[in-house]
Amino acid sequence: MKNTSRSLLVYAFIYLGFLYIPVLFLPLFSFNNSMYFSFPLSGFTFEWYREMFRNEAMHQSLFNSIRVGGFVALFSTILGIFGAKAITRYRMRGKKPVLAIIMLPLVIPEIIVAVALLIFILQAGGSLSLLSVALGHVLLCVPFSIAVLISRFEGFDQSMEEASADLGENSWWTFWRVTFPVVLPGIVASLLLCFTISFDEFIVAYFLSGTEPTLPVYMWNQLRFPKLLPGVLALGACILLASFIVIAFAEWIRQRNNNMALRQSLASMTSKIR
């Protein structure tokens, strides 16, 4: 038993190495004083980071991605809340096939979603823009949002909602004062997840972005030009750092909220009973 544990620990570190080493080459080369990614390293430089700050086109694409991601996160999560609440709170006939259709994008390769939307938009006489990218991303994100939120809606005691209704609150205020605080961590998780999926999504954006590239599409266009690549790596390193901070923050919020939400809703309920 002791032996298995030790060999598993060794395996775990080797596997972590396999996961981390390729990714860590990117920040490493973003400080390397050469356009080419090869050993030996030629010297330390901040040049690529300076270039990153100068590059207007990159800023524009980053801004595009943030706008699309923000819209997608908000819109998908709202649709996700409707969906998750309906699915967990009501007995409905034909629930299973309807749910299956909503979850369908999870099991379709993304390129097919991209192609179908491309055909649809152009045949309908529309034009490609960030909005078409956002629509495609909503399609990909809603199933994830519902999956996250269903577990949150299922996890809490329905009698709290019933108690609020019995005490005379209408369904609107019951939602805001009881349901919302309890499912808030799920909503935050859904927002973060949808933003991340949209922010990183390439293939749908590649087909649908038209003349307004999102960040991944911009990066893709740079991958062929070695001169511009180190700037992309610098940005990649910054995004990795930023997402690390976001994860740490989200985890902190989640742990805090797990206690807070419950305490809050309990407190508001007891105060009403009194």
Partner: peptide, 28 residues
Amino acid sequence: SESLKGYLLLSPTILVMAGIMLIPFIGM
């Protein structure tokens, strides 16, 4: 009516998903 209420609540999600998935799919 419970079924109906459920579908009423679910309708925005169904409409959006069907609109941007099923229709493009038929088009394809």
